[in-house]
């Protein structure tokens, strides 16, 4: 699981790490993992492939809960 999904990883010096997941349907999802444990998740725009909105801030617990929801069969 997960091996086929393209995820790029870019360091954000001083802030954390930026992950981008590209979906088969042509959209991309951004996850910023802050060093402080905060995760930000957002969706890239359709007309501007490099921008995503401010998205949603998730605490560690919320991120885990969301991951569980998404991973459930």
């Amino acid at each position: 699981m997960g091996g086929q999904v393209p995820i790029s990883e870019t360091p954000l010096p001083g802030i954390g790490t930026q992950y981008t997941l590209s979906t088969v349907a042509g959209r991309a999802i951004s996850v910023v993992a802050g060093r402080d444990g905060v995760r930000r998740i957002a969706f890239y725009n359709v007309d501007d492939p490099d921008a995503c909105g401010p998205g949603v801030r998730l605490t560690r617990a919320e991120a885990v809960a969301l991951a569980e929801l998404l991973a459930e069969d």
Partner: peptide, 17 residues
């Protein structure tokens, strides 16, 4: 501004570094 997830943000930060 909510630009942390944008693709140009690593570029901006690397210039600062």
């Amino acid at each position: 501004l909510g630009h942390l997830g944008n693709r140009e943000t690593p570029v901006v930060l690397s210039v600062l570094v």
